[in-house]
Amino acid sequence: MKLFYPKITLVLVIIMLSLVLVFAGCITTKKPVVSGTEEAKELTIYSGRQEKFIIPMVERFEQQTGIKVNLISGKATEYAHRIVEEGKNTQADVFLSNDAGILEYLRLENALTPINKDALEVVPENYRAKDGTWVGVTVRCRVFIYNKDLIKAEDVPKSIFDIVDPKYQGQFTINRAGNESMVTYFASIRSIIGPEKTLELLKGIMANKPLILQSHTDVRRAVGSGEVKFGFVNNYHYKTQLLEEGMNNVGVIFPDQGEGEIGTFSNVSGAAITRYSKHPKNALSLIQFLLQPEQQKLNDETPIIPGIEGIEYDEYKAADTYLSNVGPLWEETIEMMEEAGYSD
């Protein structure tokens, strides 16, 4: 009797190997979505924030956790669209936004999943969604940046409502209306002063023929280079402009600080976990990671966590708005901006 049949052995080995492969395949492809204790070590981020700010964080996160991150950067509105349209098939686990309004849009579209409460407690209440579906990661407030060669500090408007004064005609620059944070800004003003006055403000601004530019970077550089006297940016754009040699003779004004004025509007850049995320645990660890003081310090922007050592926080009176009131006003605000001719 022959004990060794090479052909049969070969067939058996092949069968066993393929079974092993199939099982291995099952383990990696069938990720435990709901209950599972094991989650594949990967994470996909749709990011609407500038890539150069996010990449260093993502690299640290990968090193610390061993989770492979697939970072896709672009325009927040576009990715918000995509997350809604992709529905259950979405690739995105985490959505990073440059703006709270667009996070609110996703919340209202029911495209987000609530983040674990314990993770959120470190963040002040007005910088996160009421139902915990999104959380701010950094704070950015709307300020005037001005060119010291061209205009004296006392001549720069002290309130957003001052820039409708005809004497400022053609002297300032703002971002395109297509930028999410412009919509959120006017939506928050709308939540304080009501629709009529907001429309009036918008029309006044447009009547003053501002230079409308493609991006905040373009705005701060136009001011820094002396193309226009002042512009409307986020506070960190001012700090970045100070680093640009030859174009850094600029100053900053926090608007609406006076008695009875509405205060400077603060927006956030934020993060959320998508409703149909395939890796919710990894997503949560990323968000927790972003909220740790070490990462908060890495930001060019103001950390959202108060009282971190070694950070100089800007002192200003913040506008009394809840970012989570902005979402429902978003569409209406866009219509008002269009009405005023401030629409693309």
């Binding site: 325009k75 509105t77 576009e78 918000a80 669209h81 849009y105 395109r176 209306a177 297509g178 930028n179 999410e180 978003w330 569409e331 866009i334 629409s343 693309d344």
Partner: peptide, 8 residues
Amino acid sequence: FQMVGKLD
């Protein structure tokens, strides 16, 4: 700009 900047 209407296309990329607007939800509607």
